[in-house]
Design a protein around this nucleic acid. Sequence first.
DNA 1: TCGCAGGTAGAAC
DNA 2: GTTCTACCTGCG
Length: 304
Amino acid sequence: MIVEAPIDLELTQLSGQTSQPPWMEVDNCYSNVVLVDGEPVVFNLRQAGDFLDFNFRGNVSQKKAISKLSYIFDLDFDLNKFYKYLGNHAELAEMSKFCNGLRLFLAPDPFECIISSICSANNSIKRWTKSISQIKCNWGNQYGNYYTFPQSKDLLNVYLDEEQELNSSNIQNISMCNNNLKSCGVGYRAPYMRMASEMFTGEIDFREIFAMDYDEAFETILKVPGVGPKVADCILLYGFNFREAFPSDVWIKRIVSHLYFDGKDMSVAKVRDFGMEEFGNNAGYVQLYLFHYARKSGLMSKLK
DNA sequence: TCGCAGGTAGAAC
DNA sequence: GTTCTACCTGCG
């Protein structure tokens, strides 16, 4: 089936958005299992010209499968209208040329994005995606070659490190202990992840966050250990589909400063305020495009 | 070897 | 409120 919405699937997959690792890729076909109304559905995606060609197998209607796919790849968003918006702003006009077809890559379930985003802090894309894939292998459900991301309750009692696993299980040799968070390479973020699992199993309900306004949702997510302003904005953008988020890190700071403030040094917090004010509901997309424009145009190495 | 990787927590001004 | 520093870990 073809979805007639322009997209660059490879660019979107490999753009390092902290919703989830890229899907499994074989010969330009991207596949993964996704829970749709609790039912495991395996999707196979392929680039077909400017559009997306896909098929699925699972016990759900075609309508529901398309709806889920459209949510994850944000297919209802009008890219051409967004490109007109970019074209009307001198500072942004170049970007669509370098990022044509790039879309948001949203998490099928917010919890995966929460853990992925915590994992991404002070980390490289390569390393956090590897860690998240390992977490799926260890504690997710397996369907063929694919794994779902575990639910928050599934991570409540995981061991934090090898030592804890050795002391609490009947494994004799510490080198055999590989069913703990630190063995996934998450380092000091392990306790953050387990505490986040506790909070989202008990005191915080996802549905409430979807219903909140931005500031309230931001303050709520900020209470989770390991979540600062940058990670909170990522979680709200990629996990909860808040389009007005403008996740600001050291790179966005350099790029915004270069494009809008003549290279003047400014705090990440000020850049965040500026982005949200300036771009409104397009803030999430502009942030995504700024980062990849800087990467692809060579601006990033110039600003380094 | 050493610094860096799409930051955060905790403490000190 | 804003600024400073240590921090798991794998890679170059």
